[in-house]
């Protein structure tokens, strides 16, 4: 564990807490893409298959349980909870996210570390996470004004993977034979997808104005 990875995990955890706060405090999930939440639930379920088989550390297991349970809970909330489900922007959240799942499956079958059940599922989860934010970014552009908590949620979600890239650079220089091109490549694409969001987020923060994404 290094400081970059801890910062990344804490930023990721914080983004989940901000999202939960937004849904709980405003009793609304307007501006939140259910499709991105479903993709993230799938990412965690396919990546943490080893939750019950390999014990790495208490921290590792606790964080996996937190990420799986929070993402599933949010999907359930947005789909079935009588109050919040009505506030979901169903007609704006139209990204065909099953295409992202299909492409990730093909990529995982073609590019993986070892052709084993767990490794292919792990690669799938890495590729899927890289593009999981797309429905959310499209929804933000369509829904015009973005409420603060939603903007902060997306910001921290993007920042966590940037910390992970620093973590991979750090591990590359401190650990021998540490080359994980799948994580690096996907992590780079994932962070790059946030580039324009980060730009508009910074501009809105500098001008102390409402976050506005160009349509």
């Amino acid at each position: 564990m290094n400081i970059f990875r801890l910062a990344g995990d804490m930023t990721h955890l914080f983004s989940v807490l901000v999202l939960l706060l937004k849904i709980y405090a405003t009793k609304s999930c307007s501006g939140i893409s259910l499709k991105t939440q479903e993709l993230y639930a799938l990412v965690f379920l396919t990546r943490y298959l080893d939750l019950f088989t390999d014990f790495i550390s208490v921290y590792n297991s606790v964080m996996k349980v937190v990420f799986i349970s929070s993402s599933v809970a949010i999907v359930w909330c947005m789909r079935y909870h009588p109050l919040t489900r009505r506030t979901y922007d169903k007609d704006l959240d139209t990204f065909r996210h099953y295409i992202l799942v299909g492409v990730s499956i093909i990529l995982a079958l073609l590019f993986h570390d070892r052709f084993t059940f767990r490794e292919v599922f792990w690669a799938f989860s890495i590729y899927l996470e890289a593009v999981a934010i797309l429905p959310q970014l499209v929804l933000l552009q369509r829904s015009g004004n973005v409420d603060n908590l939603t903007g902060q949620y997306v910001f921290f979600l993007g920042a966590y993977r940037a910390f992970y890239i620093l973590n991979w650079i750090y591990r590359y220089f401190t650990e021998n034979h540490y080359s994980r091109w799948i994580s690096w490549l996907a992590g780079f694409v994932q962070t790059a997808l946030y580039a324009d969001f980060f730009y508009y987020y910074f501009v809105s923060w500098k001008n102390n104005a409402k976050l506005q994404l160009p349509a």
Binding site: D50, E175, Y178
Partner: peptide, 10 residues
Amino acid sequence: AKESSVKDEL
């Protein structure tokens, strides 16, 4: 040596 795989990451 213990494979320092990225799999010990979240």
